[in-house]
Design a binder for these strands. Structure first.
Lengths: 144, 144
DNA sequence: CCTGAAAATAGAACCGC
DNA sequence: GCGGTTCTATTTTCAGG
């Protein structure tokens, strides 16, 4: 991991489909050199995956919420969340609420329906998202 | 948006760097046809972006936490979060806590330091992440 | 890490449905 | 409108240095 790798990660985080040729031109390096560095970053697991971000709103999923749950069976809740079309993230937490789900539904009514199902696993506390000033920021290691 | 577009989105969400040729072979369609459909999905904004996911752990960021904040100046908090290397997400919420930050730091000590800075914007409540059974699930529209 | 040739891929123009 | 075919340019891969 050096400054060049960090530059490569910066570009790839902004646009995962950039060609290695173009990336090479941007950082003054030949395409095979970039290609080899990326291969090693993948091999080391520093690059975890390449994902396409689909707009939830454009597919009718206009309601986003975080649901805190106080449950005594994380396993069942995980299974429930895995098969739900509305759940996009699940986290096991420390604290009074030991579980959090991020859900995206197409109406407040369907969120309500989801919460009814959820409540059978424990007490819940729901926070709906009004806006996301920062939906995702890539990692720019502290070396810069 | 039809079943073919959904299949394309499925593949692209799993691997944003798949070639259109390979994608075409997978769904029995020629490369130019796939290319054109993807172009339109981008144009419509259904495809928002292509991102490379970098493993925080592999870069030493081993501590992940969600910080709820009760603040009366979301603007200042947003500005603070934008310039912090540790903040990866920010959401404005409805409820008692009207703001949530997702942070990734390299130790509990640095999380503590971050919280001190954060507390000047309002009351905070921190939940550290023990595990993420589902870090991200792509959207598979309810048509399937 | 660079060069250079071969293979794979992407883009554009055109045709048929 | 939508997808297929063909051709050309670009990109990737792999050899060798």
């Amino acid at each position: 991991m050096d400054q060049i790798d960090l530059k490569i990660l910066d570009f790839l985080q902004q646009n995962a489909r950039i060609s290695f040729s173009e990336l090479g031109r941007a950082i003054n390096m030949t395409q095979p050199a970039v290609s080899e560095r990326v291969r090693k970053l993948e091999e080391k697991g520093i690059i975890d995956s390449y994902r396409t971000i689909v707009s939830p709103e454009k597919l009718g999923k206009t309601v986003t919420a975080f649901i805190l749950v106080q449950t005594n069976d994380c396993g069942k809740l995980t299974a429930f969340g895995s098969q739900s079309q509305d759940v996009v993230e699940m986290h096991q937490l420390s604290g009074q609420f030991n579980f959090m789900l991020k859900v995206q539904t197409h109406s407040m009514q369907s969120l309500n329906t989801f919460l009814s199902l959820c409540s059978q696993y424990g007490f819940t506390s729901t926070m709906t998202v009004l806006s996301s000033p920062l939906a995702f920021k890539g990692i720019t290691s502290e070396l810069d």
